[in-house]
């Protein structure tokens, strides 16, 4: 039933981050941190994904893009905001082209803090996301 917890696939989108968090997300997927040992695979296709990692704040241009990616993901799904900018806009909060954190447009489940977020923190966020994913799929199957 909860096959997702054995190998959750994630999709990563760079909102308007400075790249700091992005390369740390990628660092999680490469040797040393290597989340693939938990069965996590980074995919480019939203329809394959269970977990949506977003770095950086939201602006008018990427608002539609992240909404589209989110809508295309099958339920159950979990949104993880990685880094200070994705949480609330961070240092760029006052910029004219930043609307704020990801929660302005999507329901965020897990917030990972840090500027840039450390790989340990990101992995922790993903592990929490997996637990939540199981919970969500349980309530879906009970509802049926």
């Amino acid at each position: 039933m909860s096959f997702a917890s054995k190998s959750p696939w994630l999709i990563h989108y760079d909102g308007s981050s400075c790249n700091g968090c992005d390369i740390e997300v990628l660092a999680c997927l490469t040797p040393v941190y290597d989340v693939e040992r938990f069965g996590v695979i980074n995919t480019g296709n939203p329809k394959h994904a269970d977990i949506f990692l977003i770095t950086g704040g939201i602006n008018k241009q990427n608002e539609e893009v992240v909404k589209q990616i989110y809508d295309q993901m099958p339920s159950p799904k979990v949104v993880v905001a990685v880094g200070a900018c994705a949480c609330n806009g961070g240092i760029f909060k006052e910029c004219y082209n930043i609307m704020g954190g990801v929660d302005k447009v999507l329901p965020v489940d897990i917030y990972v803090s840090g500027c840039a977020a450390r790989p340990e923190a990101i992995i922790d966020g993903v592990v929490k996301a997996v637990a939540l994913l199981d919970e969500k799929s349980k309530s879906i199957s009970q509802g049926r």
Binding site: D14, N59, N62, E94, C95, N97
Partner: peptide, 21 residues
């Protein structure tokens, strides 16, 4: 323009020492 933040304009809000960040 997808990742444009407009951080050059932040000089109006942060002083020259804070702007290092």
């Amino acid at each position: 323009g997808f990742v444009h933040r407009g951080l050059e304009k932040l000089v109006e809000k942060k002083d020259f020492q804070d702007y290092v960040y």
